[in-house]
Amino acid sequence: MATFDSDGVLIDYLDDGEGPAVVLVHGFASNQVVNWVNTTWVTHLKRAGYRVIALDNRGHGKSQKLYDPALYSTDLMADDVVRLIDHLTLDRPVVMGYSMGARIAAFTALKAPQKLRGLVLSGLASNLVNGVEGGPRIAEALEAPSLDDVSGQQPRMFRAFAEQTGGDLKALASCIRASRQTLSAADVARIAVPTLVVAGADDEIAGSAEALAALIPGARALTIPGRDHMSAVGDRTHKAEVVNFLGSLAN
């Protein structure tokens, strides 16, 4: 693991393997290890011939914890990704994000299209535009005295997940209050790099992969049968299709 200073915020990241670079951006309440190492994404991409960079988003994992919601806008977290690309002097990597990470990746593609070779948006599809409800309730769940004090399926799921991943509950509550910005249909239509959109068929948080891909010029869509928000991330079909997409960018 290594760290770099992103405009005063210390960001932890993994850098492993050789070849064209892929930058991985994890989801809310997760971290680089849980989202990408434990699910064997890092191993899978390395074996396919890629250099894998995975950061802990601000407030997550080993990166600096911040407690002001204003410091967790998606725009600021996308700046962290752009600065990491510059810090490592990466030559037009592919940026892949899952869930909240997909939102960050989309913002990154709009900020710095000239720095990217391609984009993979996983675990957040049409709801990048339509919005994902429940942020305030999840924040309250994270601030509750214990999981026993939390009601509602989604708030309980995120509180349990945050505890499982060892997250800083106060920092995560600040993050969820500020990091669920949407993009308009016109915004996503300006994404100017080759894009793959992936979502589980049963993922109500993500929405429709086909609907989002239809808004992005030339984008591909993959819907994974029988997978929801938590089970889609490590799916074999998911990994195989991403590697196929990465290979297509070299042609």
Rank of each mutant, 00 (worst) to 15 (best):
M1C: 05
S6L: 04
G8D: 07
V9C: 09
L10W: 12
L14E: 03
D16A: 10
V22Y: 01
N31G: 13
V34E: 15
N35Q: 08
W36H: 04
W41P: 04
W41M: 14
H44V: 14
I53C: 11
Q64D: 02
K65Q: 15
L66E: 10
D68M: 01
A70L: 14
L76E: 13
V81Q: 05
R83V: 08
H87V: 03
D91I: 07
V94Q: 03
M96K: 02
S99W: 02
R103Q: 04
L116W: 11
L116A: 11
G134W: 06
P136W: 00
P136S: 00
I138F: 11
A141D: 14
E143P: 08
A144K: 09
P145A: 14
G152H: 08
F158Q: 09
F161W: 10
A162G: 07
E163W: 00
K170M: 03
L172Y: 03
S174T: 07
R177N: 06
R180P: 03
T182V: 15
T182L: 15
V193R: 11
P194R: 11
V198L: 11
D203H: 06
E204A: 14
E210Y: 14
A211L: 12
A213T: 04
A214K: 10
I216D: 08
G226S: 10
T237G: 13
